[in-house]
Amino acid sequence: MYNVSSSPHVKSKVTTQSIMRDVIIALMPATIFGIYNYSHLFGAKYGLRSALLIILTVVACVLSEYVFEKITKRESTLDDLSAVVTGMILALNLPCTFPYWKAMLGGFFAIVIVKQLFGGLGQNFMNPALGARCFLVLSFAGNMTAFYPTDVSGVDAATSATPLTSLKNTGDSVASLADMFIGNHSGTIGETCIIALLIGVVYLVVRKIIDLRIPLTYIAVFAVCIMLFNQSTDPVFLAKHLCGGGLIFGAFFMATDYTTSPITKTGRYIFGICLGLLTAIFRTFGNTAEGVSYAIIFCNLLVPLIEKWTIPRAFGIVKAKKEGK
């Protein structure tokens, strides 16, 4: 007689904490460059301000989780580092001029409203950081688009508006493709430098933290749709759309969130297709130049339906035959 234990039978040394730690490490290049970039563009004052904004947002997320779990008498989950990741992603989606208290309010919203009220990590129906970002956009639209400090003078015009905004309004960006790739322009703290983001992506791929099905499908479908919708065959126009805004950041760091993305292989392709299509629609026909956050959140809501359609059939199960046949 064999004694068979209950599942799972295949175990791994990978834990939630180790995954979150790897994500934090992968976000560090974009974080460090974002702080440097604002120091370079607007002076050391705004580099320090960017660093403090990130720290306060992370602290707000961690404290919100700690206090909520104390009040509700839940087991503490601070050691899984998920609150730190949420705070970092939210902060990197903010401009350096964003008020501190509003960023901390966003951290509270992400943890308490989006995450904990739905059961905590693994139960939230949308990405907490993106849910908070959209909340801040709706509540403080002016602050969320204030990429240029009003007390700074004599700065090159390329820093006064994001390249993606000028690309949508005029058909060309105020920054060159090279500047957009290396991050020499204004924007949110974490989205500007594609090189820094790709360094983090390589780390996540090497560590086998993310599956490339979603981000690559997302980017490919977006590329096709943005060219079709804008009736353009200019490769530079496409490259600027890929480098502008939060597309790379969103595709690799937010759309791949384990909780809010499909677990089936086919479902991940469908998820990526929906993301690319929606982002292209929002960027081309929407009132704002960006669309990544709303596309990801909308597709997060579709995940249960996508998984229902793509769930694999259990081995040995066949459809019942109808009577009379």
Rank of each mutant, 00 (worst) to 15 (best):
Y258D: 11
L277D: 03
A158R: 08
G43I: 09
Y269K: 10
I214N: 09
K102I: 06
A146T: 11
L216M: 09
F298D: 03
P95I: 00
T159K: 02
K240N: 10
K115N: 12
V67W: 11
F282C: 03
T145Q: 12
S76T: 09
F125S: 08
Y148A: 14
F33G: 01
V155W: 09
I25T: 05
L167P: 06
L197R: 10
V303Y: 12
V112R: 03
P8D: 04
F222D: 03
T162R: 00
I113S: 06
T159F: 07
D22E: 11
N37H: 06
T16I: 13
A320D: 08
C225E: 10
G34A: 05
L56R: 00
A223T: 12
Y100A: 04
L27N: 13
L302N: 03
F125A: 13
L197E: 04
S166A: 14
Y269A: 04
I113H: 06
V236D: 11
L121I: 10
G190D: 01
I311N: 14
A146L: 11
I35K: 00
G34M: 01
V292N: 07
F229R: 02
D172A: 15
L105K: 09
L216G: 05
K325W: 14
L164D: 07
I214M: 08
H185V: 01
V205H: 13
V84P: 00
S39Q: 04
G171F: 08
I270E: 10
L81M: 14
I71A: 01
L216R: 05
K321Q: 09
E75F: 08
F147I: 09
A44G: 08
T15D: 07
K265H: 11
M254E: 09
I54W: 00
K308G: 02
T16E: 04
L138G: 07
E307N: 13
G291N: 06
L247P: 07
N184P: 08
F33I: 10
R133K: 10
N3R: 05
R21V: 02
T150A: 15
K325G: 15
N124D: 07
P149A: 03
I219E: 01
A141W: 10
K208R: 15
I219D: 02
F33K: 00
L212E: 12
T86C: 07
G43H: 10
I35N: 00
L81D: 05
S160M: 11
G324M: 13
F285T: 04
T256H: 09
I270H: 04
G122F: 08
F315Y: 12
L92P: 00
I111T: 06
L212C: 15
F229V: 01
L228E: 08
L198S: 09
N230H: 15
